[in-house]
Nucleic acid binder design. Structure first.
Lengths: 122, 122, 122, 122
DNA sequence: GTGGTCTAGACCACA
DNA sequence: GTGGTCTAGACCACC
C-alpha cells in the first residue's frame, strides 16, 4: 500500500492518512492481520511529524480499523462482513447526500447528474 | 431568499452563507441586480456576528457574485450566461470527482453508485 | 462637458465627480466663469443623490475650483496661470511618484516603463 | 524582508501589507517556499491587530501568492515564470493606464510626462 | 508553537 | 441608513 500526503491540501494531514487507510481496509485491499509499517518509517518517508502519523493511527484504532500490539506494531483489525458493509454504506450514503444536495441547489436535474457520473467513472 | 445557518456543522458559518448565496446566484434564483439584505439585518436574524456575515460577503464579492456599493448596499452581480454555466460545471464536476474517487476507493462499482443517486434524488 | 459616473467603481461617486471637474478646469477645458448645470439636473441625469453631487461641489468650492453665487448657481472660479500650473504639477507629480514606486518594487527598469508609457499614449 | 505600515495613509493597513508582499513575490525578492513570519510576530512588530494581518494574508492566499499550512505557518507559493510575468504586466499596465488617463485629462503631453518619469526614477 | 474562526463593539466614510 | 476598517480577546484544530 502506497501512502501519500499533500501538505498544501486544506484537509489535515492526519485525516488524509486516516482516509487512505480506512478506505483500503473497507474495500478489502488490506485484509485483517496485515502489518502496517512502523510509525517512524511512515513519518520519515512522507516527511511528516511522527505525532501526526500517531494521531491518524490513534483515530484508526479508535474506529476499529487497527489493532496495536505493543512491541510488535500495528495490524489491520478483523472486521465482520456485515460491519464492513454497514460502514461502506454509511460513508457512501453521506457522500452521495452531499452531492445530491449540491446538485439540487445548482438546479441540475437527476439525469444530467447521472450522466456526469457515468463519464467520470471510466 | 431564506438564509440559514447550522452552528453544529463543522463547516465555518461564513462558508455556509457563501455556499447558499453562490448556489442561488448560479441556479438563477437570484437575478443580477437583486439587492441583498443589509449585513446588520442578516447578522441579527441569523444570530451571528456582523463580521462573520461580512466575511462571507467579501468572498462572494471577490468571486464575482456580489457588487457592493458603500452607502447603498450589496447587489447580485451581473454574470454572463456562459460564465454562469462554466461555474456550475466546475462546481459540479469537482463534487462528482470527489464522490467517484471515494466510491472507487471503497470498491463500489458504477451501477451501485448510480442506483444510490437515483434513490436519493427523489 | 459630459459628466459620467460608475457606481460599481470603488472610488466614491462624489470623488469621481470632483476629479472630472477639477481636471477639466485645470486643463483649461472649462474657462473661468463657465456656469455649471444645477445640482438637481446633474443628480437626475446621473441617477445619483443630490447630496452626493452637493458634496462634490462643496469640495470643489473649498479647493477653489468653483464659486457659488446664491440664487444664480455655480461657476468656474478664476484661477491665476501660475496657480493653475502649480496644481497641475502637484497632481502629476504625486501620480508619477506612485507609479515609479510601484514599478521599482516590481523590478521594472526605467526604459521599460517609459516604453510602456509611450505605447499607451497613442 | 522588512514590512512597514503607515497608519496615516488612507489606504487600509491590510492593503499596504498586501502590496508589499505581492510586489516582493512578483519581483522575485521572495522565492517560492520562503516561510513568512508568523502572524502574531508581524502583528506585534508592526503594532497592528492580528486580524488586520490575517486579512492581508487571506487576500494573498486567495490571489495565489501564499500557501498556508495550519500548524506550520505560511509560505510563498510557487508561481510559474509566465504567470509571474503576466501579473507584473497586468499591475504595471493598469497603473500606467491610470497615470496616462490622468495626464491626458490635465492636458499634459507625452514628452513632458516621460521627462518627469525620467527625473523621478533617479 | 502554528493558523482558523468567531464575538462584541468601536469609529469612519459614503449616500 | 449603508458598508469599511480596526481593535482586543477568546476558543478551537493542527503539528
Amino acid at each position: 500500500m502506497r501512502l501519500s500526503v499533500n501538505p498544501n491540501d486544506k484537509t489535515p494531514i492526519y485525516r488524509q492518512l486516516y482516509e487512505q487507510i480506512a478506505s483500503e481496509v473497507l474495500s478489502g485491499g488490506l485484509p485483517a492481520g496485515t502489518p502496517l509499517p512502523p510509525i517512524r518509517t511512515v513519518s520519515r518517508e512522507l516527511g511528516v511529524s511522527m505525532i501526526t502519523v500517531r494521531s491518524a493511527w490513534d483515530m484508526l484504532e479508535r474506529d476499529g480499523y487497527l489493532l496495536t500490539r505493543t512491541g510488535s506494531g500495528c495490524f489491520v483489525a478483523p472486521i465482520s462482513e456485515t460491519h464492513r458493509q454497514t460502514k461502506v454504506d454509511e460513508r457512501l450514503s453521506s457522500a452521495v447526500d452531499a452531492l445530491v444536495t449540491d446538485a439540487k441547489a445548482l438546479g441540475v436535474d437527476k439525469d444530467a447528474l447521472i450522466a456526469l457520473i457515468g463519464e467520470k467513472y471510466r
